[in-house]
Simulated assay, not measured.
Amino acid sequence: MCESLEESVSFRVATHQDLQAIVQMLADDNLGLKREDPSTPLSHSYHTAFEAIDADPNNELVVAIIGHHIVGVLQITFIPYLTYQGGWRALIEGVRVSKEIRSSGIGRAMFEWAINRAKERGCVLVQLTTDKLRPDALRFYEDFGFVASHEGMKLKL
């Protein structure tokens, strides 16, 4: 019997050597193309950001791997709060699955992993934002059980 893509995926913390592949995935859609620059060599700003994420024990940049290929990425940030009786929450951002295998179950596997990771860290809540121009992503998150309970706002600087 053939193993499904979802069953063959594994997860690990990203390394500096993964950075080019990660940025290429982040840029591989209409919105990402407007924000990211995957040209080689990568801008120094990506390296600086990676180093800051990697050095912070409350940040994990995680890649999904099939064989030796990076097929997905997400960043999970663990945030202490006074609300929820001093509970921690996990913020999931920068989620991408390689264009060639979207809708194959990899995204579901990534979120199952991330939610379990949040539980391991003692989080009481998992939160995320998604661009309103990504209706498929919104449906995915809702199907997963996320609820649009708050109105998110951002201020570009």
Rank of each mutant, 00 (worst) to 15 (best):
residue 15 T to V: 14
residue 101 I to M: 05
residue 149 S to C: 06
residue 99 K to V: 11
residue 133 L to H: 14
residue 62 V to H: 06
residue 65 I to L: 07
residue 34 K to S: 14
residue 74 L to A: 02
residue 57 P to R: 14
residue 92 I to T: 06
residue 40 T to S: 15
residue 23 V to P: 01
residue 37 D to E: 10
residue 61 L to Y: 07
residue 23 V to L: 05
residue 12 R to I: 07
residue 10 S to F: 12
residue 72 G to D: 01
residue 133 L to W: 08
residue 72 G to R: 00
residue 64 A to E: 00
residue 4 S to P: 01
residue 131 D to E: 09
residue 99 K to A: 14
residue 58 N to H: 13
residue 87 G to H: 01
residue 110 M to C: 13
residue 59 N to Q: 13
residue 16 H to F: 15
residue 40 T to E: 15
residue 105 G to Y: 12
residue 28 D to A: 03
residue 78 F to W: 00
residue 32 G to E: 01
residue 97 V to G: 08
residue 132 K to A: 10
residue 6 E to A: 14
residue 94 G to T: 11
residue 63 V to T: 10
residue 153 M to N: 00
residue 38 P to V: 10
residue 149 S to E: 12
residue 76 I to F: 02
residue 34 K to P: 03
residue 9 V to P: 06
residue 148 A to H: 10
residue 154 K to Y: 13
residue 87 G to I: 02
residue 7 E to W: 06
residue 142 E to Y: 00
residue 47 H to Q: 14
residue 44 H to L: 14
residue 56 D to N: 15
residue 74 L to R: 00
residue 53 I to N: 04
residue 33 L to E: 15
residue 67 G to P: 01
residue 54 D to I: 07
residue 119 K to Y: 13
residue 86 G to E: 01
residue 7 E to L: 08
residue 114 A to Y: 11
residue 24 Q to I: 09
residue 39 S to T: 13
residue 135 P to C: 02
residue 63 V to Y: 06
residue 106 I to Y: 09
residue 115 I to V: 15
residue 15 T to S: 15
residue 30 N to V: 15
residue 121 R to M: 07
residue 111 F to D: 02
residue 133 L to T: 15
residue 129 T to L: 08
residue 111 F to W: 10
residue 93 E to M: 02
residue 67 G to V: 00
residue 2 C to E: 13
residue 35 R to H: 14
residue 115 I to G: 05
residue 138 L to C: 12
residue 91 L to R: 08
residue 1 M to C: 05
residue 110 M to E: 07
residue 124 V to G: 04
residue 57 P to G: 10
residue 30 N to L: 12
residue 98 S to H: 13
residue 124 V to A: 05
residue 59 N to C: 15
residue 94 G to E: 11
residue 116 N to F: 03
residue 53 I to E: 04
residue 114 A to K: 07
residue 147 V to A: 06
residue 29 D to A: 03
residue 38 P to C: 09
residue 71 V to T: 04
residue 12 R to M: 03
residue 59 N to M: 14
residue 142 E to M: 02
